[in-house]
């Protein structure tokens, strides 16, 4: 088991965005999360990656429980230092890439392994170049993000996340900020990672991609998981009316 989230609750002000959500991810699994905009998909990923604090619930990575519900029903986080050591288990790829514009492609990929993980620079450089080659970006190693297309930038962002060797990688709508003709190159890279058995959770609106690549699909609506299962079941024979409705809207 890589990730286990149980009974996650999260509100913004009075708005309940996540209502008792659970998510289990095993090693090598690819889980897709689909659902209408505003259903809480990003919030779920942001809670899983500690960018947002949950109100209640449990989050466990590998064998470390980072968040548990305390006696008063409120979430209790591990102390700062121990929480940081849990953070090395995951990476996150953002919709808006969030590359560091003042760093070259190579430095974007190398900097955290060298300055956060304190690994040997030459070793990291070799690995970084290998990852960039896999992303078909090795010839752009010295370019700056502003000189790249959106698709290339997102692939650099994926390379940057992979360089830290996370046990699980989250993607929040990795192709939604891209021109349609550029989504393919990013999806191809994610598909390739899936073939290599990289553990991933992907929030996406690319239904054919989710159907083809994932081991499991979650349909979220209004802060709850309405339906989940094998992609052929969820897409081919959805059990819930809300799922059917959502998928119908997508086929139009």
């Amino acid at each position: 088991m890589i990730l286990q989230m149980n009974g996650i609750q999260k509100s913004f002000g009075g708005l309940e965005v996540l209502k008792d959500i659970s998510l289990h991810v095993d090693a090598g699994e690819v889980v897709s999360i689909i659902g209408p905009s505003g259903s809480g998909k990003s919030t779920l990923l942001r809670c899983a990656t500690f960018l947002e604090k949950v109100d209640a619930g449990e989050i466990t990575y590998m064998d470390t429980t980072a968040v548990r519900t305390g006696g008063d029903g409120h979430a209790v986080y591990l102390p700062h230092k121990e929480l940081n050591s849990v953070k090395r288990y995951f990476g996150l790829v953002f919709q808006q890439f969030n590359l560091f514009p003042h760093y070259s492609v190579l430095k974007n990929v190398m900097d955290a392994p060298v300055h956060v993980q304190k690994r040997n620079k030459e070793e990291v450089r070799e690995e970084a170049m290998a990852i960039l080659k896999k992303m078909d970006l090795d010839t752009r190693a010295d370019a700056y993000p502003c000189q790249l297309s959106g698709g290339q930038q997102q692939r650099v962002a994926i390379a940057r996340a992979l360089a830290l060797k996370p046990a699980i990688l989250f993607f929040d709508e990795p192709t939604s900020a891209l021109d349609p003709e550029l989504t393919g190159e990013v999806l191809k890279v994610i598909r390739q990672l899936a073939e290599e058995k990289m553990t991933m959770v992907v929030v996406t609106h690319e239904m054919p991609f989710a159907r083809a690549v994932s081991n499991r699909v979650l349909f979220m609506d209004k802060g709850v998981v309405v339906e989940q299962g094998h992609p052929e079941d969820v897409f081919g024979d959805p059990q819930q009316e809300r799922t059917r409705q959502f998928l119908r809207n997508y086929q139009r």
Partner: peptide
């Protein structure tokens, strides 16, 4: 996003 990317990267 710059702060969040940095935080995620540790």
């Amino acid at each position: 996003g710059q702060y969040e990317a940095a935080e995620i990267l540790g």
